[in-house]
Nucleic acid binder design. Structure first.
Lengths: 360, 360
DNA sequence: GCCACGGCGGCAACGGGTTGCCATGTATTG
DNA sequence: CAATACATGGCAACCCGTTGCCGCCGTGGC
């Protein structure tokens, strides 16, 4: 019959080791935290005893006096969004390199949840990376006042930031569409609380001016496939030949929604996404999209945070900008000028949408 | 000129509150941790003072004496795998309900990294959920000896487990393929360190016996799209009409790989996946797959962990089994008996594979 | 032979709560 | 009115390391 009582095995402390090695507890402490401060033979003996007794230093107790937990928090807006997976990987690598542990927090796209989680975790970590935070600027500043913070995908005065070169990405996308003959681009907006959403739209406005391409915006929609499908319905009401979506999930949703209504991508409409998630490569047609260096974002932000924790002032001037690139796949094509067969069908659908159109 | 010195603002402690509210520190402590133990008026006054001073109880200091951090660890095999997103959500919800914070650890499919991370985190958390652990049974038992542990997607004697009804899922998939006329199913194996991989294969063996369907296995391959594409090449060497893949990513990879080589899915080969990730619904053809209740897995495992932490014995008998269901989409079809056009092409590709076949 | 100095180890205070136990003061009971 | 019970608050020890400071001792210089 198995023993169901948890074995008492009290945790081994420096005091146990000290008694066994016949030194004082402070010497044991130093043997681990500042080996140079104690005779190497003594240190060796202590380490052997510690090993034998199975001593592990208690990080909580240590943190209590040093006020360093060697943990950082990484807050992401939505763990369901594959974009963050790579960011997490990058952050984790940088943290591990610096002998830090990452605690990951999923804000579920909610300002409230994010604040609550940050609040709860703040005192347990040495610093925080906010990736695509949904909190208000002032809330972020509040947090930054209490702990080192690096903000990812958002620019904010007085707080160190890492952002991607979205203006350049949008510009490249617009150029690409322009070269394909499109003279009008519709931006399908994501969450208004999302900082990149604003930037992308403004960048498109600007690019439109310079390239003499008309632009307009619809939305906001939820930054998901479902959001994209809703956007597709709205797109049908006010047709477009070129669409730039806030992110890839929406772009994929848009493509699905459109083809369900008999609109061909890229034949009738060209669609460009943002982020270059894995799925962008496996959908049909393959999604043209603006790729961000996700892994690098995570690791750059984290590395910067670690230097701040180590005492560096934190570079609060201009944000650190990471380059993007346009990945051209099959969801963009030269503009179809005349209303061909497919285009006529679209027109037909507009007046009398056939919900079963996608069923063979 | 902004003030670059971090404001000294020492942390407010119970001592500060005590002095201000004119009570002893222990009373302040009790006002928060056991309000019934102190006069409600006093407690109110203390709370007001605490509020005014901005007091927050220090979880580390508390943990030091109570040895309860109110944090649990959730270890997942690969954050890149979308399967875990829902599991994380479920776990997080359950944890939040119990006023626990979840710290997420990504093992990156590595036994070594997983052990290291668990080792590092163990002493900081009250319990651990191991979702699809890649560690050895003995390593897991070791951990379970020191902290409450619930294992997800794996059965292990003497440790509480939550698993899905994979045998039933495989059975349903086999029945489905059988009904479509397939008399031979090839299992494309995932990581050998993955427990479900073994179960799925054994379940297929068993189902094959009962349904009089021949089965065989190829692999192991990495549980990714790339792994699936590699598997597709091997499948071409030893053709099959029905394939059950370890997971959806592999299934998608297989479909891509096959169609690149001119093999039609589901015309020539039917493919079934496992997990029902989001992408299963957006690929072409839509992937037939065995869906697991991911969210429920996460929350069930976490809830069980919390009861263990609260002192319940931990149900180490039979694992808790969650139901699955077969989601039929377009990647499975009736078996194509004669070597039709596409099938002949496949045969051609076998003898002289054309690497450019997928380029129009 | 004396002094200065460096290496090493110990003492004790500290960090910020928690909790067993005791000392009041008040309410209840006989 | 005495005896008892209970509500409330304080004391002090404790959790487990860390660290400033001091003392001891051996060594080397003069």
């Amino acid at each position: 019959m198995p023993d169901h009582t948890r074995p008492p095995e009290k945790r081994v402390t420096i005091y146990d080791v000290a008694a066994e090695a016949d030194v004082s507890p402070s010497t044991v402490s130093r043997a681990f935290s500042r080996p140079s401060r104690v005779n190497s033979e003594t240190a060796d003996r202590i380490r052997r005893v510690a090993e034998r007794l199975g001593y592990r230093t208690n990080p909580l107790a240590r943190a209590l006096t040093t006020s360093r937990t060697r943990m950082i928090a990484l807050v992401i807006a939505d763990i369901t969004n594959p974009v963050y997976a790579e960011i997490v990987r990058g952050a984790q690598e940088a943290a591990t390199d610096g002998e830090y542990t990452t605690v990951l927090i999923d804000a579920q796209e909610s300002d409230r949840l994010e604040r609550a989680a940050v609040e709860r975790t703040m005192s347990t970590v040495d610093g925080i990376v906010l990736a695509s935070s949904r909190m208000s600027d002032s809330a972020i500043r509040m947090v930054a006042k209490q702990r080192p913070v690096v903000v990812l995908n958002r620019a904010l005065a007085d707080v160190p930031c890492v952002v991607t070169d979205d203006p350049r990405g949008v510009r490249r996308a617009a150029e690409h569409l322009g070269e394909l003959g499109h003279d009008h681009i519709t931006y399908v907006a994501g969450p208004q609380a999302s900082w990149p959403n604003g930037i992308r739209w403004r960048s498109l406005l600007e690019a439109g001016m310079e390239l003499e391409i008309k632009v307009r915006q619809i939305g906001p929609f939820s930054p998901t496939m479902a959001g994209g499908e809703r956007a597709a319905r709205e797109l049908c009401a006010r047709p477009a030949t070129a669409v730039l979506a806030f992110n890839d999930q929406m772009a994929i949703g848009i493509i699905r929604g459109l083809s369900r209504m008999g609109v061909n991508v890229p034949g009738d409409v060209s669609v460009v996404g943002f982020d270059n998630i894995l799925a962008a490569d496996i959908v049909t047609p393959g999604l043209t999209t603006v790729a961000a260096p996700l892994y690098a974002e995570g690791s750059a932000a984290t590395r910067h945070l670690l230097t701040m924790i180590a005492g560096a002032p934190g570079h609060t001037g201009r944000p650190m900008v990471l380059p993007v690139r346009l990945v051209v796949r099959d969801s963009t094509a030269t503009r179809n000028p005349g209303p061909g067969r497919a285009r006529r069908q679209w027109a037909r659908n507009r007046s009398a949408p056939d919900p079963a159109a996608h069923r063979p």
